[in-house]
């Protein structure tokens, strides 16, 4: 039944999410194209000094450069707005189909409560992956191509020189995506916490999320700081952002929020 629920939830949310995602891809392509222009103009103003440093003469940048930069900024802000809208839409879908009158329909389907709730969570993550991964790919690919085409000082690296950087970049992106997933799961958890209250449900939800977000940010930076201090003294000398402490904390938080959300929904569901 879980597969059926996921297929149905994907179908219900497809019209809005497809629109948001396609618009995001369009904006990403605009950023890549404008970046290529600014790269070209930038690199035309550069010279390589005897010391090996690259100097840019920014006094001679034409007005079109600044127009392109502004377009990039606006497009980037628009992507952030779309990401926020997508998150709000999916959280609203989750809330309406679990905790409002549509919950009567959801929870009388011939499925376990765990399946019904998990389906909506999984669909949120599926859309998040469809939103993030292609955007990153377009961005990275576009930037690389622009650099290769327009940077006169571009030096082609060998695969062995290029690969570690690429692997680290991919791991960083995966970790950031997982952190986003943890925060979304925290949202689901806070929505279930809000339902435990008779009044001011949304207020409790928002306040509990703010508390969790602040606490998890403190934990994240504390772990990063501790790792920085340990650098070179122990086995993990890879990256501060994705240090073992942050990875373990993210996994524990994700599982804890998920289990707690399911338990609360199972025991305390009341659609009055």
């Amino acid at each position: 039944m879980l597969k059926k629920l996921i297929a149905y939830d994907l179908k219900r949310t497809r019209p809005v999410m497809t629109g948001i995602i396609l618009f995001t891809f369009l904006l990403t392509i605009i950023i890549v194209i404008t970046n290529a222009f600014t790269n070209k103009i930038d690199n035309a103003q550069t010279e390589k000094l005897e010391s090996g440093l690259i100097q840019t003469h920014s006094d001679n940048l034409p007005p079109i450069y600044f127009t392109m930069t502004n377009i990039q900024t606006i497009a980037l802000l628009a992507i952030l707005v779309l990401a926020t809208l997508a998150t709000i839409y999916m959280l609203r879908y989750y809330y309406k189909t679990i905790y409002l009158t549509q919950g009567y329909l959801s929870f009388t389907l011939p499925a376990k409560t765990t399946e019904i709730v998990s389906s909506k969570m999984l669909v949120t993550y599926i859309w998040a992956l469809i939103f993030i991964i292609p955007s990153i790919f377009i961005w990275t690919f576009g930037y690389s191509v622009a650099e290769r085409l327009f940077d006169p000082h571009y030096e082609k690296l060998s695969v062995s020189a290029y690969l570690p950087g690429l692997v680290l970049f991919a791991l960083d992106i995966l970790f950031i995506i997982f952190e986003i997933f943890v925060q979304i799961m925290a949202f689901f958890f806070c929505l279930s916490i809000g339902q435990l209250c008779r009044k001011l449900k949304l207020h409790v939800t928002v306040l509990s999320y703010i508390g969790i977000a602040i606490a998890s940010m403190i934990l994240f930076f504390y772990n990063m700081q501790m790792h920085q201090m340990k650098r070179g003294t122990w086995w993990w000398d890879y990256d501060d952002v994705i240090c073992p402490a942050n990875i373990i904390c993210a996994i524990i938080l994700f599982i804890s929020f998920y289990v707690a959300t399911i338990k609360i929904t199972n025991k305390n569901l009341n659609l009055e």
Binding site: K96, T97, T101, Q102, Y104, L105, T108
Partner: peptide
Amino acid sequence: IVSYLPDRTYLD
């Protein structure tokens, strides 16, 4: 095997 009609509109 249970078909339930609640006392409110529950469809989207």
